[in-house]
Design a protein around this nucleic acid. Sequence first.
DNA 1: TACTCCGTTGCAGCT
DNA 2: AAGCTGCAACGGAGT
Length: 519
Amino acid sequence: MAHVCIHWFRKGLRLHDNPALMSALRGCQEIYPLFILDPCIHNKDTLGVNPWRFLMGALQDLDGSLRKLNSRLFVVRGKPQDVLPQLFREWGVSRITYEYDTEPYSRSRDRKVSELAKEHGVEVVYKISHTLHDIDRIIEENNGKAPLTYVRFQTVLKALGPPKRPIPAPTVQDMKDVKTQCLENHYGLPSLEELGHDLSCLQDALFPGGEEEALRRLEENMQRTGWVCSFEKPQTAPNSLSPSTTVLSPYVTFGCLSARTFWWRLSDVYQGKKHSAPPVSLHGQLLWREFYYTASVGVPNFDRMLDNPVCTQIDWDTNPEYLAAWREARTGFPFIDAVMTQLRREGWIHHLARHAVACFLTRGDLWISWEEGQKVFEELLLDGDWALNAGNWLWLSASAFFHQYFRVYSPVAFGKKTDKHGDYIKKYLPVLKKFPVEYIYEPWKAPLSVQKAAGCIVGKDYPSPIVEHDVISKKNIQRMKTSYAKRSQVVSESPQPKKGAKRKAPSVLDMLKNNNSKK
DNA sequence: TACTCCGTTGCAGCT
DNA sequence: AAGCTGCAACGGAGT
């Protein structure tokens, strides 16, 4: 019997390498490609204007591509568990397909939807295509635990072999027996205004959303074979005037570009040539993504400090003034403020720029919890991927994965290495553009006469630095040392085995393992 | 258990 | 220019 099918797009906003969509088309007489605007995810507080616009672009592109296949995208608003049962009845649906999503919110949502589907006699089909591998298989291969080091992660992946090859997008031929009721004037695309953002200060999108742009951008980058083969992430500049990396991350985050398509396209370029290797290569970057996805599945409460077994417990300060200064680009450190300005304005900043501002907010200078930084990044980044965002904040704050807390980024020195004239600062903070090169990273050191000549008085036209970095960073290293000392105490004080008992004291790793097997 | 080795991306100062 | 050292010193993983 032929099916009436909903393919539910959530991430995976693409037609290429979309196995769940292909499953929808098999034995299907009628398809409803669907996107649900979920108030829990798509709201003004958690989704800033830039990522919202990116999503709009991606949906528009998807609708256009589906129309070329004589179909369209249907957009509805509401909680999926409320909306879907109505649509099941209204459209006479017999099957729903979607891409598997590992995020905790998505998993609980999908569990509820699965139950509702069963109640309505709707078959549920889901496929793995957001990650290179089946994340649960990686954890299984590592004895039920998420690997906590990249080296270990690579060893585990070797046992699994290379990722699956991507599959092509459906063609008109694939769709020839599949109808879509077009229902024009219903289920239309959302508008940019819909979330109620202020659009007046919005500049043209540097990175427009959508699969077409994603594949164009991929090809554009892959043409530069020498650059691709010699790519080493730590050697790329955080403060070049145009991006020094691919900026494919927003497209991978929303699934406009398949990670597997990216992986195999890189393999094509590498073929027969000498090339860089993980962790620094472009393949290595995709593996970092996979690493954090695996950790986010294997570690409970991954995006929090409390009850997160891999996260060092640190006595972060509550300091709304410092936090506001950081997020609003008025710390008085031009490099930090320029990065935060670029983030807010354009929605993308280089990975090392993220390091610099993340270190500054947390263990380096302001001693504010990484969870606060995580929220700001989540709102403003085009590539605010839940697992990567949490994982990188854990890393940078030296709360997990990375432990050399005595390596502190200098808000003055770090940027100078790759932009000694401060052109990047002048681009994003034009108020400083007349400062002489020698003061551009430290304008408060300029004599008043120089400040006057530059038309910018520090403390009036541009803020004075909110902390004394050299002093505070040394103090903070000592605070880190204290937190780490407590950490090892906690581990050694964990319950000892009773005499004669075979079981060892549960370590952090055992806790992880137990949590995982309970699932 | 105790030990070594090593870790995508620190900084300042030196050669 | 790239690569070393001293700074004060971490944990995970393997032996």
